[in-house]
Computed example of a mutant assay.
Amino acid sequence: MLPSTPPDEITLLVEIIHPVTRVIVNYDFVDLVLIGARERHTGRDLSYDELSQLGSSLGLPVVERVDMELARALELAKTLDAQHEGFVLRWPNGFRVKVKSTRYLEVFAAVHGWSEQSIARAWASNTLDGVITGIPEEFQSEFIKIKNKLDALLAAELQRFKAMMDTAPHGVSRKEYALWVRANMPQHLQPLAFDYFDGASIKPKTESYLRRYIITQFCQQKRG
């Protein structure tokens, strides 16, 4: 609730600063920040001086004003870090344009452009660790959570395959071996079992194959 009631003829424009509404920038306070106000009958956009007076009367912080030309704002936006979203340019008639910082847009795309399926695909191609180190620490937890889940599934499948290979028959014909494989092994592990029989160096292939199998199952579950 506002400390006092705004005038009836004024519509407030505020930014909600709260962890629940956070997108990228990690603010160190919780509040409503007054970013603009209009006369609701005429549509007139209050000047910054009027906005400051209104904010003072309502007990609301007011957005900072930075005086600069458009070209300067565009140039400065390239140098800001991800914790500075950018600028809102305001013309005398109230027209506004957002200028986002380059780094903010990069982080936004990195964080919000990833679905659980795309994270899983990065894990399958062994590129997820690089993705995680490339985003701010406070956004890494969801990526790490999915990575740990997939790592556990991979470890279980590798252990399962090893245990089955430890019981596989030796010194038998390929036909006899094939009959054992088809009777005792799940279908998705059978191609690996034949590589094992043929004496191939299967460790790298086994892990790569199982990663692809796991993300196929993972993505199907998410779609279902």
Score class of each variant (00 low, 15 high):
4 S>R: 13
7 P>V: 03
11 T>H: 07
15 E>M: 06
15 E>I: 00
18 H>P: 01
18 H>W: 09
23 V>M: 11
25 V>M: 11
25 V>E: 08
29 F>N: 00
29 F>L: 02
29 F>C: 02
30 V>R: 10
31 D>H: 03
37 A>E: 06
38 R>D: 06
39 E>M: 01
41 H>N: 13
44 R>N: 06
44 R>L: 04
47 S>H: 04
48 Y>K: 02
48 Y>S: 04
49 D>C: 04
51 L>D: 04
52 S>R: 07
54 L>Y: 03
63 V>L: 00
64 E>A: 05
67 D>Y: 00
67 D>V: 03
71 A>S: 13
75 E>C: 06
75 E>F: 10
80 L>I: 08
82 A>R: 09
86 G>N: 04
86 G>D: 09
87 F>N: 00
90 R>N: 01
91 W>T: 06
92 P>F: 00
93 N>G: 01
93 N>Q: 10
94 G>M: 03
95 F>Q: 11
95 F>V: 11
95 F>G: 07
98 K>A: 04
102 T>D: 12
103 R>M: 08
104 Y>W: 04
105 L>V: 14
106 E>L: 10
107 V>L: 08
107 V>A: 03
112 H>A: 04
113 G>V: 02
114 W>K: 14
117 Q>V: 12
117 Q>C: 13
118 S>V: 15
121 R>Q: 07
121 R>T: 12
121 R>Y: 02
124 A>M: 07
125 S>M: 13
127 T>V: 15
128 L>H: 05
131 V>K: 09
131 V>N: 09
131 V>W: 13
135 I>P: 12
135 I>F: 03
135 I>C: 09
137 E>V: 04
137 E>W: 12
140 Q>Y: 11
140 Q>H: 01
143 F>V: 07
144 I>W: 08
151 D>L: 02
151 D>T: 03
154 L>P: 10
154 L>V: 14
155 A>D: 09
156 A>F: 15
158 L>E: 14
161 F>Y: 02
162 K>W: 11
164 M>N: 14
164 M>I: 13
168 A>N: 05
168 A>R: 15
173 S>V: 06
175 K>C: 15
176 E>W: 12
176 E>I: 12
176 E>D: 15
178 A>G: 12
178 A>H: 03
179 L>A: 14
183 A>N: 08
185 M>T: 08
187 Q>C: 13
190 Q>I: 01
191 P>S: 05
192 L>E: 06
192 L>R: 07
195 D>L: 11
196 Y>M: 09
197 F>M: 15
198 D>M: 14
199 G>R: 06
199 G>I: 07
208 S>W: 05
209 Y>D: 14
209 Y>E: 04
212 R>I: 14
214 I>T: 13
217 Q>W: 11
219 C>L: 11
220 Q>P: 04
220 Q>Y: 10
221 Q>W: 13
222 K>E: 13
223 R>T: 07
